[in-house]
Design a binder for these strands. Sequence first.
DNA 1: TAGGCCATCTGGTCCT
DNA 2: AGGACCAGATGGCCTA
Length: 129
Amino acid sequence: MQNEDVSLKPIDEKRLPNKTKRYKEKRTRINQRERQRMHDLNAALEGLRQVMPYSQSTSLRKLSKIATLLLARNYIVLLQQTMEELRAMVNDVYTSKTLSQNRLHYYSTMSQQIPYQGSTLYNFHGLNS
DNA sequence: TAGGCCATCTGGTCCT
DNA sequence: AGGACCAGATGGCCTA
């Protein structure tokens, strides 16, 4: 991260050499708001990173913005699929009097395969590169 | 050194 | 008119 200070800063004279004082004061205020807006956006992204099921190990580089969004999207898709499987399982339990041994084995193993590994999500959709 | 990622500045557009 | 949002431009930092 670079400068996190969102306090008012004078604008760069080299970039705007012939502008009025009034204009420069306005630009300074607009720039401050824009910096704050981007910092808020980054804070939201950081909050998303904190709940993503990838390793929090400090030895790994922080996820980029685009990787964070793609990973989150894939995680949501996988959770939706898991919910569908669970619904089907519950439906089976309540509609069939006897479960086959194959079905029982499937349920017991499926519950252990909910994807908590970041690498799984990473290779799921759009993050193969 | 090239490429990826990022923060910041800027002007345009839309909304209130 | 002012604020929010957006995309393009620019320059800095880091890594392979």
